[in-house]
Design a protein around this nucleic acid. Structure first.
Lengths: 219, 219
DNA sequence: TCAGAAAATGAAAGCAGATTCATGATCCCA
DNA sequence: TGGGATCATGAATCTGCTTTCATTTTCTGA
């Protein structure tokens, strides 16, 4: 026993792991999970394929990590807004708008997370992602009902409907090759947000113009 | 040249083709496209795998046919309702309700058509399916706007949002193993329909109770 | 500096399917 | 009824990946 992992080595290992994840993430952001083949990730990260398997038990494992990393970032982002101050419906509007807005701007990545055809395992991860969106929406709807800002309704169902409506309304436009949205993305986002708010009986007369900062899905 | 295909033979060939499609369709209705492996379809239909390739150029081809057959039936169904008589919004409500209702009742097949993870080719087919739903919705929305029943809006976007909202709101419940919906499916459908109609500013006070006939996605 | 231990490598093996194709069965018409 | 044509068969092959693992390289503490 003449070997004990040094801090320096541990750091390097961690670094390697990060590099692999980064390479995979970038490939996903460019061409979806489809492009994240083991060989490609290896090449891009600068390590051998065998090496990847010292850090991840399988390709599936690697992809799941990537999905989680990226989606967690998005969810935290929305979650923070949801927990902010202001009337529940104002926060809901901001969350919806931010969601749609970031998806449009980070189109390729959003496509990968939301609608690219993927295998069952990633599909599960995606379902969780959607479910989390729905939870955030549902929480705000509950608050709004509680506050008497909207009529009582089944918030779980309404939230799920929103979680489906937003991405789908963007999907054609979200597909990598599509440029339908380039004309007037802000207007489209406005319409979608309006749709969701009206659906729950919220007053939509005061909907603000699109967000100005250039937020987007980021790899 | 001592062979010319007889009518009898042609009929048998057509019959075989139908049998293969039927076997595939049934497998899909039971376990999704995942279960429609060439070997399985062959076994179920009673023909050899090689035979399938005399009728379909590839597995992909076969699956696409199945998807089209089934989805076309659904779309025609909705389309007929959409072209019926009555106020546009009444027809829209009926279309939405029928869509949701049939999906709930023909859960497994609906899952396969709407949210099962599938490869790129079927995903394209699915996109078309969604797009058709959206077109039907959009047509009715246009009529409603035209008739002055609702305020003008971007009907394409609203329609796409509905096409996403309905399946997603059902999805947890739609997944084959889920039984969330068994408690009170009609109520859930009501909520979803209400959501969509409210979203476009339709008067929802007169929403009728659930449809009575036992319509469903049929293989 | 060296021996033992971990880490990295990438060519080869594995894998789960779809797809092919040589062979045998069936069919048609002269 | 026979020979040429189509049809059906299913074991063997092909395919595009992921995954393994014997070998090489790097690291550690004595």
């Amino acid at each position: 026993m003449a070997y004990k992992r040094t801090d320096a080595v541990a750091a390097r290992l961690a670094q390697t792991r990060r590099q692999i994840l980064k390479a995979a993430r970038e490939l996903v952001a460019e061409g979806g999970f489809n492009s994240a083949q083991v060989t490609e990730v290896a090449k891009k990260s600068g390590f051998a394929t065998g090496t990847l398997y010292r850090y991840f038990t399988s390709k599936e494992d690697l992809c799941r990590q990537v999905f989680r990393e990226v989606s967690t970032k998005e969810m935290n982002f929305l979650s923070t807004i949801a927990q902010g101050s202001g009337a529940p419906l104002e926060r809901l509007e901001k969350v919806l708008r931010t969601f749609a807005d970031r998806a449009v701007r980070g189109r390729r990545l959003a496509f990968a997370l939301l609608s690219e055809p993927v295998d069952v395992h990633l599909a599960e991860e995606r379902a969780r992602f959607r479910q989390t969106h729905a939870s955030i929406f549902a929480g705000l709807l509950d608050e709004a009902v509680e506050a008497g800002d909207i009529e009582p309704l089944n918030t779980a169902i309404a939230a799920a409907a929103m979680a489906g409506a937003v991405p789908t309304a963007l999907i054609g436009p979200l597909a990598p090759q599509s440029h339908l949205l380039d004309a007037d993305p802000a207007r489209t986002v406005d319409e979608i947000v309006h749709f969701c708010l009206a659906a729950i009986g919220a007053d939509t007369t005061a909907i603000q113009p699109a967000i100005k900062n250039e937020q987007r899905f980021i790899a």
